[in-house]
């Protein structure tokens, strides 16, 4: 059935697969980073093109519209400055009280705003690539947020890029707490429904559930990966599973993983 060239081709591909599958994890990660670096010029080109397009669109906006936006931004800036002053005072008070109680002081997180370069091309992984890496101080496990709330964590880090695993991917499990009831659970995978990609499952909830739809979910800080208090989403519905032995809920994320342009990495 097979002629010699077909055997050679089959053997070459099978051998390549076997060799690649049996590479040590670190070497495989390095090969991936090296191969992924081949796409950096194109990602840079797309970034520049988007920047130019944004500049061009700004050039055709009427002056009156720009002045209106400027005024709105000035007002927002004033409001935010006031809030920042209040938050600073509250933070200092918090640190002072922690010292009085001999608690470990919670260090302030530094932020790094990053642009999204690409998404994982396979449909069954929820991940993105961002334009900052080890040279910018990123390392695996750092939390990634957007203004609406938590979005994921840094997974694989290259010198100038990093892969962020998004909420809903099985590799990104988050310990969370329902603010209104104080019940803790683990945010696991994307909900199996066909519709909203923002729906994720909240598991490991207690049997006698007090959680109601509409309640808010925050990170609990358990596990030490994510700082406590980051907003995650709201409870959509609850259900009893395992013949009533425990409960699960569906949570609608505040942040939309399908519409990410910029993300913020929290650096300790």
């Amino acid at each position: 059935m097979f002629k010699r060239p077909q055997w050679v081709a089959f053997s070459a591909v099978t051998l390549a697969v076997l060799v690649l599958w049996n590479l040590p994890d670190r070497l495989a990660a390095r090969v991936k980073i090296a191969l992924g670096a081949l796409f950096l010029p194109l990602f840079g080109l797309v970034g520049s093109a988007q920047h130019l397009a944004a500049e061009a669109s700004r050039a055709v906006v009427p002056r009156a519209e720009l002045e209106r936006q400027l005024e709105a931004l000035r007002r927002e800036n004033l409001r935010l400055q006031l809030e920042l002053t209040r938050a600073g005072a509250a933070f200092e008070e918090n640190q002072r009280l922690r010292q009085l109680l001999a608690w470990r002081p919670a260090g302030p997180w530094q932020t790094r705003i990053c642009s999204v370069l690409a998404r994982d091309p396979e449909a069954w992984w929820q991940a993105i690539h961002i334009d900052a890496g080890a040279r910018a101080g990123l390392r695996p496990g750092l939390p990634v947020v957007v203004p609406e709330g938590l979005i994921g964590r840094v997974d694989r880090v290259a010198p100038t890029t990093a892969e962020v695993v998004l909420l809903g991917d099985p590799r990104c499990r988050v310990a969370v707490v329902v603010r209104e009831t104080g019940e803790t659970g683990v945010l696991t995978t994307r909900s199996s429904g066909m519709g909203d990609p923002r729906l994720v499952d909240l598991t490991h909830l207690p049997r006698h559930l007090a959680v109601q739809p509409g309640q808010t979910v925050f990170t609990s800080g358990l596990g030490g990966v994510f700082p406590p208090g980051l907003p995650v989403g709201t409870v959509v519905d609850t259900r009893s599973v395992g013949y009533g032995l425990y409960s699960e809920a569906r949570v609608r994320l505040y942040a939309d993983p399908s519409r990410l342009r910029e993300v913020i990495v929290l650096l300790p």
Binding site: W21, A28, V31, I33, P121, E122, W125
Partner: peptide, 8 residues
């Protein structure tokens, strides 16, 4: 290389 699939 760009996906989370095991290499190969």
């Amino acid at each position: 290389a760009l996906s989370a699939n095991p290499l190969g």
